[in-house]
Design a protein around this nucleic acid. Structure first.
Lengths: 197, 197
DNA sequence: CGGACTTCGTACCGTCCGGTACGATCCGGG
DNA sequence: CCCGGATCGTACCGGACGGTACGAAGTCCG
């Protein structure tokens, strides 16, 4: 029964559906925790369709990770922008957003960093490096606008707190990880601006 | 040719050899990146020997992770102890030790956290939770001896910096991650002790 | 209406995996 | 001296995996 009775037959839509389901399942089960066959069954698509759209499982993984990186980066940037102009408020907003993420059921850490751990050589590692660099851009910008003496260092300290909080929230089941990191980040921010002034 | 010509035939030694080689290879390649057959070939042992000692691949992985957790925890504690009595010096010593670890060729992040990512359900996850709790014990102790107002919170902030620095050193190839985290940790320590005093 | 395109379902391929079985061989202790 | 245990090498098993092939059936567009 090819092409179910009243299907829309829109390749872009098909691709998006595969991408969405794969994003969820690859995150929940890990890159090696689910096979192409089961993925196709969950999507409701055939293997041929998946392979026509993505070429290979690695191609699908790559597409999933890049789309997810874009979404996450935009989400954090929006959270910062929504907090107004004050750098401290923006920083707090970023960590508050993280806290809401950690509290979501099914949270398993950062999908992109996790993927890089599972494929330590290859494309996912590069995606993760770019992903962290984009986070760093946001955080360093906040540090710079706050007038910190060394915004580059401060931004990387913020990033360390962000990633560390994510690890704690995942492996320690610590729901307060984001609040802790926020407090630490704000303390560092104050110290780097008011302190040496 | 069973039992090579002049073998020692010491079960404990055989077990230790398997454990050592497996520790290295499972870290380098990932838990799913190497099979039991190749592992046995690298050790110079037969599958039967491996299965007699560890029961299953999961059993081997568990033994590897627990031994590694013991070693790492002891290593960090020794680094702190060697720094004398001053909490700030102990904290600095911990992050300096981390920095030397990050600089080692073949560094790929924390093997135990990585394993928990690859086996998100099951024993490795429990080992990782205990591992982080043991680190927390050390760091909270330093925070408490420093006279911090909230040593529990400060210790968890230290842990977030530790884990975050490890992520940065791995995925960002940032050789200064440990120094950044040390600076941040010392700033937090000063702020939590001198500040509200 | 008709051809190009998309999708489905299924079968299939070669490969690798974790785990078991078994005979042969050599060490160690009584 | 000899028996029990440790080990090797190899063969084997069932299953899962990534990927391909192909015919049938439906949609979309000119």
């Amino acid at each position: 029964m090819p092409v179910p009775k009243g299907a829309t037959l829109d390749p872009a839509q098909t691709r998006a559906t595969i991408l969405d389901t794969a994003t969820r399942l690859l995150y929940e089960r890990g890159l090696d925790g689910i096979g192409v066959a089961e993925l196709c069954a969950a999507v409701g698509a055939s293997k041929e369709t998946l392979y026509r759209h993505f070429g290979s499982k690695d191609g699908l993984v790559l597409a999933v990770l890049e789309a997810r990186s874009d979404r996450v980066v935009r989400w954090l940037r929006d959270a910062a922008d929504a907090a107004g102009e004050d750098p401290a408020a923006q920083l707090a907003a970023v960590f508050d957003a993280l806290g809401r993420w950690y509290a979501q059921p099914g949270f398993r850490g950062c999908a992109i960093v996790n993927a890089a751990v599972q494929r330590h050589a290859g494309a996912p590692r590069d995606v993760a490096a770019r992903h962290l660099a984009r986070h760093l851009e946001l955080l360093t910008g906040i540090a710079r606008r706050s007038g910190a003496a060394d915004p580059d260092r401060l931004g990387r300290q913020f990033l360390a707190l962000l990633e560390g909080a994510t690890v704690l929230a995942d492996h320690q089941a610590d729901p307060d990880a984001a609040a802790l990191a926020k407090h630490a980040a704000l303390t560092l921010l104050r110290q780097e601006t008011v302190g040496p002034a």
